[in-house]
Nucleic acid binder design. Structure first.
Length: 262
DNA sequence: ATGGCCCGTAGAACGGGA
């Protein structure tokens, strides 16, 4: 049985729950990692998802951030070894949740936006990234089959940017952010989507304004990174642009990797 | 040139997103 893992920034699970349920019914992925749920844990729609066949783990807060992992009970069952946040980086902001499914370690992150390179939020972003890299080094020794997924808020290079000149040096495109991502790739993680030689101008996020989706004026910032052991078993990785065409869509599209035999 | 949208918290605009 292939194992399908999806990452999707839903920009409010309250608003997007009908879309998520429809999408799950149509795609039947095994693990769905969500970001920007914007829900406190007491308001998480556990029952509606359970009725759809999915168990959930989650870490949320009011208004901002919030992450969750849904798992298809019939195929992969419940999450094991759940870790909330980064043990090396105490953080009020709920941006990280990790668990194991059928031996695959899934680390799901809503990476800080950073706002602007000269802002305090950018300082926080770089600290958050550095701490994540340190913790990942540990996790990878414990879990050889690991997937780091989520809304990275980083473009790998100009191929991930619709207008590189306009974005040069801007947030998501700075040398510091890209350098951090490069060091992860140099350290052996594989950018699943890029590894399948995708067509140019493949993006995962489009601004709500200016008809950006219609013009395909987007960025690829939602990524799935796999350890080499896991990447060898990856069969495909795709971005579901159809989800972005729906009424009241998230500004991000789901990204799915299919892994051979679990 | 700038901002143009969406969401949550409000209970009007505003912060934040990217």
């Amino acid at each position: 049985m292939p194992l399908k893992i999806t990452t999707w920034n839903v920009n409010s699970l309250n608003v997007r729950l009908p879309h998520v349920l429809d999408w799950l019914a149509a795609h039947s992925v095994d693990v769905l990692c969500l970001q920007e749920t914007k829900l406190t844990d007491d308001r998480f729609p556990t029952q509606a998802l359970r009725d759809a066949g999915y168990a959930a783990i989650y870490s949320g807060q009011k208004t901002y951030n919030g992450v969750a992992i849904l798992s298809r009970v019939e195929t992969v069952g419940e999450a094991a070894d759940v870790v909330i946040g980064n043990p090396l980086f105490p953080d009020e902001q709920k941006r990280l949740i990790s668990a194991t499914f059928k031996g695959v370690r899934v680390v799901n992150g809503y990476f800080p936006n950073g706002q602007a390179p000269d802002s305090d939020k950018f300082v926080y972003k770089l600290a958050w990234l550095e701490a994540l890299a340190q913790w990942l080094d540990r996790e990878r020794t414990q879990y050889p089959d690991l997937a780091l997924v989520g809304d990275f808020n980083i473009t790998r290079d100009d191929l991930d940017v619709h207008d590189p000149e306009a974005w040069r040096g801007q947030i998501h495109c700075t040398d510091a952010e890209r350098g951090w991502l490069s060091s992860l790739l140099d350290g052996g993680l594989v950018d699943a989507f890029r590894s399948f030689d995708p067509p140019p101008k493949s993006y995962s996020w489009w601004d709500y304004r200016q008809g950006a989706f219609r013009r395909n004026a987007g960025l690829r910032i939602d990524l799935i990174l796999l350890t080499q052991a896991l990447a060898q078993r990856a069969r495909s990785c795709s971005i579901d642009r159809e989800a972005r065409k729906r009424e009241q869509p998230s500004d991000h599209a789901p990204v799915t990797v299919e892994i051979e035999s679990y």
